[in-house]
Amino acid sequence: MKYTEYDTIDFLSDEFFIQWVKNPDKNTRHFWEKWVQQHPEKRDMVLEAASIIRSVRYANSPELSDEMYVDVFETIVKAGNQSCRKESKSWFTFYPLKNIAAIFLFGFCGWMVHFHMIVGVQPVIPAETEEITVLRTVPPGKRSIITLADSSRVFLNSGSEMEYPKAFSQGDRWVRLKGEAFFEVKKNGFSFSVFAKNTEIKVLGTSFNVKEENEDLSIALVSGKVQVNDQKGNQVRLNPAEMLAIKEDGKFSKTSFDSLEVTGWKDRILVFRSASFREVKRKIENWYGVEVSSNGKVSREWKYSGIYKEETLENVLRGIFITSGMQYHIENRKVTLYDPK
């Protein structure tokens, strides 16, 4: 049967389709995005099937606590050690197993040394030591790259602020953000949380953009997986190429996004996509740390699109003038724009 003859139920049971919805990769994305474009009449059906697939969840999903995770591991490994002692004869006759015993012994010695050197010298690190945090603020017109203790990288956009622990204690990676940042989180087996507004964005190892503007928050996922928990207890998971927008009143919506427009700033690319005058003004103010005002009225219909990589303010303004006719005047850190029409 061809995909064009598919009914919702056929999509719902198609492995290739489910793969695209659950774990999209280059292949599936290329195929299904093209296919949907060519068969717009099937779009609603595809979206419905995809949303059902994504929303089916276990009704109970308790998380295994970190404590239990370690306990279970310990029990398993120790049980193995015991049987090793009991059956020592048969163990050592079997060649590879002898090695394992040696590794265990070696590991144990190593651990003893480690334990006595570190834990012995500074006996007990109190569990509730005050964590030293660092606060970084980036003024308008500047951008900054921060490497965290776990070697995750954060691009901090102009006019933003981030607080983070100087060193991450075991399994506790977090930062608090005001403004906009792009995260490249390194996987290390523990989750990484970004707190922005009243929302927690929880990830393992991924790259994504978080932007807080006025009272709204948006999260755009480039790769990996993120889970967003808001203060009302709502939980949304994002797939790559999806963006979640949370409005001031807590309403949220998911869309796709233009990755250059959303994340271009971290590569020093300034992007306008049919931007309104207000948007252009705000972007330039933030990007160059200047004040922009307009002289006279600008038509509501006025829109501007353009891409600039590491350009000076003057060049950007000249570019805007050439394509849209908007005149400019720069004096000190003040820019005046006016539409001669």
Binding site: S51, Y58, N60, V236
Partner: peptide
């Protein structure tokens, strides 16, 4: 194996 549906669907319908 009880099932629940997350808010995913909210976004479309």
């Amino acid at each position: 194996f009880p099932v629940t549906l997350s808010h995913e669907t909210v976004l479309i319908h």
